[in-house]
Structures are given as C-alpha cells and as structure tokens.
Write a protein that binds this DNA or RNA. Structure first.
Lengths: 123, 123
DNA sequence: TTGACACTTGAGCAAGTGCTCATGGATCCT
DNA sequence: AGGATCCATGAGCACTTGCTCAAGTGTCAA
C-alpha cells in the first residue's frame, strides 16, 4: 500500500482525508487516463503477449513469429504494425526478412513483473 | 535488461543463445498468455483506469463514482461488476449504497508504476 | 526476366466492448 | 404502505478488434 506522493495535481496521495472531495481534487485528467490505458493495450491481448514474450527471448522475423506462435503471417504483420506505431518494437530489414526487436524497457519490465506474479498466484 | 531466470520451462531466460530454437523451447503456453492478458485487461480502458485511480484515493460508492467521473450510474455499475468478477475490487453494502474498494495490490502497484512512467515520459 | 519468398496492406467479417435505456430489486424515510 | 434513492441487470446498439483472404510490394537467385 503506502502510496507515494508524486506531484501536486492529480495522482498518488495519502488516501481518505475526505473521500469524494479528495477524489474530485486529484482527479486523473482524461488524456492521462487515455495514455495509461494505451500503455496497457499491448499486454491486454494474448497474441500480443505471446509476441512480446517471444521477443523477450530473441530478435525474430515475421515468418518465424508466425511459425512459432502458430498464426498466419498476415496476422503477425498486422499486430507488428500496431506495435511499431506504439513504439514498442523496432523493425529492421535484412534481405527480404524484417527482424523485430523490443524497444520499450517499461513494457518489458511490467511484462516480466506480471509473468512472475501470474506464476506465483494460485489459480 | 538483464533478464532473470525464473524456472525451467517457459519464461525469463538469457536471450539469443539460438533465436528460434530457444523461443520454441521456452514458448509461453497459451493459457498463461490468457491469464497475463486478463490481468492487464482492467487497465487497458480509460474509464476503468479512472475508476481504479479514484479508488486508490478513497473508498467510493457507485453514485459518487458516476458523479465524479461524469458517467452514468449504469455504466459504472456494469464496470464494477466486471472488476468484481476479476477480484480487483470488493463491494460492501452500507444502507442503500455499495462502497467499492481496491482489492488487488498487484494492479494497484502496476497502476502506480505506470502513472509515474507516463508522467516522466516526454510526449 | 522470371519466379520464389518475405512481408504489407485493404476489404470484409464474426466476435467482443462499452455505453444507454428501461426495468426491477433493495433499502430507507415519512 | 408509499415514495424516493441507490444499485443491478438485460436488451439493444454503435463501435472496435483481431482475424482471414486476396492482392500488392520489395528482395534475392537462377
């Protein structure tokens, strides 16, 4: 628990000094909620989770990803396009293959944390 | 970087000893990918992000959440049902109101981490 | 050049999501 | 009891998502 104060406006504060009033005062602005949601979008889909996990282990090209994960190359390509737009991976062409690499240490870290958490938890 | 070894089968390993072979060997099983994706589902939607943020500040009832976030009580109630099913919040009835409280320290922590990360990052 | 291979892209579709609206249940007050 | 308030729920709807399929681009090798 023990939340941490981060700044003056909108975030982590000692809770429950007044309830509704406190919440209203430190309300998370909608654009920031959008950015946070966006940063979790990548890991909220099983296919992308598996792609990101694979890229944690090695740099891989589109067709290897498709083959290893058992999905079509087109499906992989579509996902990689989105991940690239979110700056979560970088693509590098070598010959006719395109190799993908994880580009975001934050996503890598929350993924690894979550993997540990899922392994420890009972269900 | 410096990934951490967690167990023998499917997870965090020193990368790139062979690429595809290594990935195939340590492939994340689909059910585990589903569980990880599920644990991020809550924070991948702006409305739920704002609900969870509000609940990090105080215990709140349905109607206060609706009023503070500027959405309908029905919309809140539907979201709270899902969050309850995922065991992320607990509900306690007091009179005719139902007060919600965060129930998952892991979600609380990754949310707080992410909030800090979003605040530090440029864009 | 011709073909094969790796990847990209757009259209289209089935399934899922988040909301509103209407209704019903639970609780309190007079 | 009757009404008011708070919440839950189901139906319905617009929108999004993740996929497949088909067609196209880029690269290499014979």
């Amino acid at each position: 628990m023990d939340p941490v104060r981060v700044d003056e406006t909108c975030d982590l504060v000692e809770p429950d000094q007044d309830g509704v009033a406190l919440v209203r005062e430190h309300l998370l602005p909608a654009p920031m909620a959008d950015r946070i949601a966006g940063s979790f979008w990548a890991l909220a889909d099983p296919t992308r989770v598996r792609i990101i996990h694979a890229l944690t282990l090695a740099e891989l090209c589109n067709c290897d990803l498709a083959e290893v994960l058992g999905i079509s190359e087109s499906a992989v390509s579509h996902q990689m396009r989105d991940l690239r737009l979110m700056n979560l991976v970088t693509a590098e062409r070598r010959g006719r293959m395109v190799f993908y690499r994880l580009n975001d240490t934050h996503v890598r870290h929350i993924f690894e944390d979550s993997l540990r958490h899922v392994q420890e938890s009972p269900s």
